[in-house]
């Protein structure tokens, strides 16, 4: 692997983990792999410590809420970057809304600490093993996770911004 590209990284991942690499795509050139939530530390740790891939930098952690996808409403999205080979990829783990639990990455990257706190704050994702899982931007007394789609931004009786007015 002199150079990393989507094909050879995906192949290496599939050789090492087989069926655990569930769904992949390459939107806008970035390799995206869906992995089981319970194996996130194992697979991301493998990517980090791989002699060639060396995903040493955790660019970003965030969550996405898809209320329509039953049983996998919440997605935790990791952006990884290998600086030695200049290769970026995205890892997604899906979680059910009733039990949004996933292992923390703080053991692998110090940067994960606040990024996971932010994700917990806004989406309520429970990062098990996190050293200090508290709210970070919102106040501690808040009793909901505001970026979940069920919480409307504005008065719900307003309909002037409704997509149905635009034929969608």
């Amino acid at each position: 692997m002199a150079e990393l590209n989507n094909e050879n990284v995906l192949q290496a991942l599939k050789e090492a983990f087989g069926d655990a690499i569930m769904h992949t795509d390459e939107q806008y050139g970035m390799l995206t792999a869906e992995i089981p939530a319970e194996r996130n530390t194992e697979i991301i740790g493998w990517l980090k410590n791989h002699a060639e891939i060396k995903m040493g930098f955790l660019t970003d952690v965030c969550a996405v809420h898809n209320p329509e996808q039953k049983g996998r409403e919440l997605a935790v999205v990791y952006h990884l970057h290998s600086w030695t080979k200049n290769f970026r990829m995205r890892i997604k783990c899906f979680l059910p809304a009733e039990k949004p639990e996933i292992a923390t990455l703080t053991g692998l990257y110090n940067a994960a600490n606040w990024m996971e706190r932010e994700t917990f704050d806004f989406y309520g994702v429970q990062f098990t093993g996190h050293p200090d899982l508290r709210r970070i931007l919102n106040m501690d007394e808040m009793d909901y996770h505001p970026l979940l789609k069920q919480y409307a931004l504005e008065d719900e009786t307003r309909d002037d911004k409704d997509d149905s007015f635009f034929g969608r």
């Binding site: 939107q27 806008y28 970035m30 995206t32 660019t59 970003d60 965030c62 996405v64 809420h65 999205v77 952006h79 970026r88 995205r90 997509d163 635009f166 969608r168």
Partner: peptide, 30 residues
């Protein structure tokens, strides 16, 4: 689609992770 784009901000990598569902607003922007 979903796209991640980064620029070198004055204090570091400023990234935009944007998910569009084709609607008039982003589905998710981080």
């Amino acid at each position: 689609g979903e796209v991640y784009h980064a620029v070198e901000g004055a204090n570091g990598e400023l990234g935009y992770y944007l998910i569009s569902d084709g609607g008039r607003t982003p589905y998710r922007l981080h």
